[in-house]
Design a protein around this nucleic acid. Sequence first.
DNA 1: TATATTTGCAACCGATTAGTTTCTTAATTA
DNA 2: TAATTAAGAAACTAATCGGTTGCAAATATA
Lengths: 106, 106
Amino acid sequence: MRRDVFQAIADPTRRAIIALIALQAMTAGAIADNFNITRQAVSKHLRILTECELVQQSQLGREVYYSLEFEKMKEIDNWIGQYRNLWESRFRQLDDVLVLLKKQKK
Amino acid sequence: MRRDVFQAIADPTRRAIIALIALQAMTAGAIADNFNITRQAVSKHLRILTECELVQQSQLGREVYYSLEFEKMKEIDNWIGQYRNLWESRFRQLDDVLVLLKKQKK
DNA sequence: TATATTTGCAACCGATTAGTTTCTTAATTA
DNA sequence: TAATTAAGAAACTAATCGGTTGCAAATATA
């Protein structure tokens, strides 16, 4: 069972679920209303998202509210962040070269 | 054939390949030396990464050099970026509340 | 209390995935 | 020219994935 955040966000339906609950916590049924698949299929997606701790659930009576765990989203941000640093430093290096060329032109 | 960036980075081997070629372009064979799987399996991963334009290839004689396409990495950054904005604004809101509580305490 | 609602779980199915082995093609080098 | 090397293509396999239907449990409501 590979259950990491990257595998979780690979599925477009799960990314759509994330987009939905990012703004406000929602029940499984309410989430399922937004898709053309069965409630059970959505429930399975929610379980995967919960298992990798991208989503948190809190029970209120018989209803279960799902909300986004932003701390886990930061893990993805940290991963892409290391490459962001790379492309930004490359951009600065290119910028330095351009400035140098401009000076030589003068 | 679903071939988007999110599906591409879902596999841990492909993320390791990305980490390798982020610093310098490498041939398929040289990349494969870093893994316990066959060269052909690595080649398949490289094809998937190339098809979704995360990786670019340039031929030099019989050697094919693979390098990271940073522009495509930015697509992932943009996706996580919308949520970064959300958690940062939430943090500011929390911060405002804390400042307010501190003032009331005085 | 009987009925309806919200939900999760289990079993199953077809498609996809990551890996293998085998083979072919093309460029280098002895 | 012959042997070697780098790489992609094809066929196959076991495991996983996303979806379904059917069922059970717990809470709310008539």
